[in-house]
């Protein structure tokens, strides 16, 4: 209950900050559309070539669903993870993390929920819209497929959160390294199109080393009805990552000595 109340306060604070820069809003919507256009142009370029019938066994509608999941996830990162978690390294470097630790609320929760960049919300909506549109165009989506896909995507969100949080936690030891999460963004870029379109040697890396496949390709496969219950492996990976993330955070906090004192 207390967490919900705090979330509401955080949300309204974020909203009032962003409404101060109204001219930015139009540009943000434009850049959301432009972002989506890049993803679409990329995928249409492949299918516009007569030599390419299918991209690693994916038809156009299926590939568009992957692009949709990618856009949605990028939007989620911009709206939620980037504005929050990048403040950790700044807080450690300057010592302002202390103020947060003094408050009687779990510090990880505060760090993870304080800010929302609502300007990037259109990215999420466009991504979601693309998934729905491509799913309808495909015409074979079943209710159970959609439910399975939703569960898998929730696990995917948990994985992205855990990876982002873990990368930021390294700031406790590597004080000088900001933007370390951009390394994940670099790898995640490989998730914008179906995994099977990539060369064979890189696919295991993107599945088992960095779970990019779980974030975009696998939820789309579930929507297409290609996955059985074996896909429930995904929530397990998510839970393990979340647990490691929490342990790492508590250990990091234990070794924190503060910059200001």
């Amino acid at each position: 209950m207390r967490f919900w109340k705090l979330l509401r306060i955080y949300l309204s604070a974020s909203l009032s900050v962003q409404l101060a820069y109204r001219a930015n809003f139009l540009a943000a919507i434009l850049s959301s559309f432009a972002n989506l256009a890049t993803g679409l142009l990329g995928v249409l370029l492949f299918y516009s070539r007569p030599e390419i019938k299918e991209l690693g066994g994916w038809n156009l509608e299926g590939a568009l669903m992957v692009v949709g999941f990618f856009t949605l996830t990028e939007g989620l990162i911009s709206v939620w993870l980037r504005p929050n978690l990048t403040q950790l390294s700044e807080g450690i470097r300057t010592g302002t993390l202390d103020f947060l630790l003094l408050k009687p609320v779990d510090a990880q929760f505060q760090l993870s929920a304080r800010n929302l960049n609502l300007l990037r919300l259109p990215d999420m909506l466009l991504g979601l819209g693309l998934i729905v549109w491509a799913g309808a165009a495909l015409g074979t989506v079943t209710l159970s497929g959609a439910l399975l896909s939703a569960v898998l995507y929730l696990s995917a969100i948990a994985m992205v959160y855990a990876i982002w949080f873990m990368l930021n936690t390294t700031a406790f030891w590597l004080v000088n390294v900001q933007n370390i999460t951009e390394l994940f963004q670099g790898v995640f870029s490989a998730g914008r199109y179906p995994l099977q379109a990539l060369p064979l040697w890189i696919r295991p890396v993107l599945t088992f080393v960095i779970p990019v496949a779980f974030i975009t390709t696998i939820p789309a496969q579930a929507l297409r009805g290609e996955l059985g219950t074996a896909a429930l492996f995904s929530p397990l990976v998510a839970l393990i990552l979340l647990a490691i993330c929490r342990v790492l955070w508590l250990r990091a906090l234990g070794s924190y000595t503060s910059a200001s004192s």
């Binding site: 990329g42 492949f46 070539r49 030599e51 390419i52 991209l55 690693g56 390294v177 933007n179 370390i180 951009e182 390394l183 963004q185 670099g186 790898v187 870029s189 490989a190 914008r192 199109y193 379109a197 990539l198 060369p199 890189i202």
Partner: peptide, 21 residues
């Protein structure tokens, strides 16, 4: 870090290579 994060052209390259092959 910034250098390694700009992978869009590499990802596109890998896909085009796979398709051409």
């Amino acid at each position: 870090i910034w250098m390694l994060s700009g992978t869009l052209s590499l990802v596109m390259g890998l896909i085009w290579m796979q398709q051409a092959a």
